[in-house]
Computed example of a mutant assay.
Amino acid sequence: MVYKLSDQLDHIGNTQYIFETYKEYLNTNRNKFPTSVLDILASERWFGGSGSTAPYYCELDNFEIIDFGKESARLILTLIKKDHRDYKEKPFRLRLIYQGLLELNIPHQKDISINPFMWRYDEFLFFDPWSSYGHNERMFTHNIEWVGKNVWSITAKQIVATWEDL
């Protein structure tokens, strides 16, 4: 179930309802998420308006997959938020490392080499394919919606986020 991407936020008069529902989903399912996801969601750096250190309206700077096809596979996204003339903020670089990469779904996009990817919305969902067998590995899916409504879906076991001022 997807809670806070543009299909909901852009078409519902009460966007606060979507965020409250998503927050309730996260609280109800806390025990199903890896600690690394809960740490990011609790971070003051992750949430906030576009003038904060949150990833919203960051530009994708680099995309790297390491150990593809192995259990140690990981994805690294490097994002940059540049100084914006409409509000005061310090530029920064955000690096997201998805460890134990299980699945990556990136839909086809025309002109990928000339159109920048700007982060718009995101959501974390728990991923528990083996729960019916009594095994909870605490994995997650991170859906990232870029400006233009392209949604990437990343399923992994852990995530690490690091910020660097520019």
Rank of each mutant, 00 (worst) to 15 (best):
I106K: 15
E64A: 05
F124G: 02
D165E: 14
W163A: 05
G49Y: 08
G49K: 01
H108A: 09
I106L: 15
D39G: 01
I80P: 03
K90S: 14
W152E: 14
D86C: 07
D111M: 09
I154A: 05
I12N: 14
S113R: 14
Y25F: 12
Y98W: 09
D165R: 04
T162A: 07
A73F: 05
L79N: 06
S43D: 15
W119S: 00
N31T: 12
F126Q: 04
I154F: 05
E64F: 00
R30V: 10
L38A: 05
L9Q: 04
G13E: 14
M139G: 00
K90Q: 14
D111P: 00
H142K: 03
Y87C: 04
L26A: 01
L9C: 03
K82I: 02
F33V: 03
W146M: 08
Q99H: 12
K82L: 11
T35I: 10
T28V: 07
L9G: 03
N115A: 06
L96Q: 13
D128Q: 11
V2Q: 12
P129S: 02
Y87W: 14
E71Y: 08
L102N: 10
L104E: 10
F124M: 04
C58Q: 08
H11A: 03
K23D: 10
G48Q: 02
H108Y: 15
N105E: 13
P55M: 08
E145G: 05
T35C: 01
N27A: 13
A161C: 13
H135P: 00
I40Q: 13
Y57S: 05
S72H: 10
Y25N: 02
L125A: 06
K32L: 15
I159W: 11
L79M: 14
E137M: 08
L75R: 08
N136M: 12
K88P: 01
G148W: 02
I12L: 14
T53P: 03
T21Q: 13
L26W: 04
T28D: 13
M139R: 12
P129W: 02
Q109A: 06
Y22T: 03
W146P: 01
I80L: 15
W119T: 00
